[in-house]
Amino acid sequence: MFELRRLRLLHELALRGTIAEVAASLSYSPSTVSQQLSLLEREAGVTLLEPDGRRVRLTPQGRMLAQHAARALELDEAARAELIDTPGWEPVRLSAMPTAAETIVPAALTALAERAPELRVELAELPPEESLFELWARRFDLVIAEQYPGYTREQRDGVEHDLLGEDPIRIVLPPSEHPTQLSDLRDRAWVMEPEGTAARQWAVQQCRAAGFEPDVRFEAADLTTHVRLVASGHAVGMLPDLIWGDEPSPLTVADLPGSPVREVFTAVRTSSHADESVSLVRAALRDAFAAHRRVAP
Rank of each mutant, 00 (worst) to 15 (best):
V236K: 02
G196R: 05
I171R: 01
D215M: 08
T197C: 00
S183L: 04
G196F: 07
P175K: 08
G237A: 15
I144Y: 05
L223S: 09
C207G: 11
L163C: 04
R153C: 09
G237M: 01
T180P: 02
A145Y: 11
S176Q: 13
T152M: 03
D187T: 13
V216L: 02
V143Q: 01
V159G: 06
Q206K: 10
S176I: 09
D215S: 11
R153L: 11
D141H: 15
H226G: 00
G211S: 03
V227Y: 00
V227R: 00
P179T: 13
R228T: 11
V227M: 01
P194Y: 08
L142P: 10
G237R: 00
L182Q: 03
A235K: 03
T224P: 00
R208C: 04
A199C: 01
A220Q: 07
D187L: 09
R139S: 14
P168G: 07
P179C: 10
R228M: 07
D157W: 14
E213K: 06
L229V: 10
A221R: 12
P194T: 07
R208S: 03
G158Q: 07
P175W: 10
P214Q: 05
V204W: 02
M192Y: 03
D187N: 12
A221G: 14
V216Q: 02
V204G: 03
D222V: 12
V227W: 00
A221I: 11
Q206N: 01
L229I: 09
P149G: 08
A220L: 01
H178W: 04
Q181S: 12
L163R: 13
V172G: 02
R200C: 08
D167H: 07
R228G: 03
Q201M: 07
D222G: 05
L163E: 15
L163N: 02
T180E: 08
R156Y: 11
G237P: 05
T224K: 11
A203Q: 06
G237F: 00
D184L: 07
Q147N: 06
Q201H: 09
C207S: 10
Q147T: 14
P149H: 08
W190F: 15
A231H: 13
E154H: 14
R186Y: 10
V230Q: 04
L229P: 03
G165R: 11
P174N: 07
F140G: 01
G158M: 04
M192T: 06
D162Q: 15
R200W: 12
R188A: 12
V216T: 14
S232G: 13
A189Y: 08
Q155L: 14
P175D: 05
S232H: 09
D141T: 10
A209Y: 02
D167C: 13
Q206H: 07
R153G: 05
L185F: 08
S183Y: 07
T152K: 04
L164W: 11
Q155R: 15
E213C: 05
G150T: 11
I171T: 12
V143D: 10
V236S: 06
W202E: 01
T225V: 15
E219N: 02
A221F: 09
L185T: 09
D141C: 08
I171E: 02
A210V: 11
G233F: 11
E177D: 12
A231R: 13
Q181R: 13
Q147C: 09
I171S: 05
G233M: 05
T197R: 02
S232Q: 14
G150I: 13
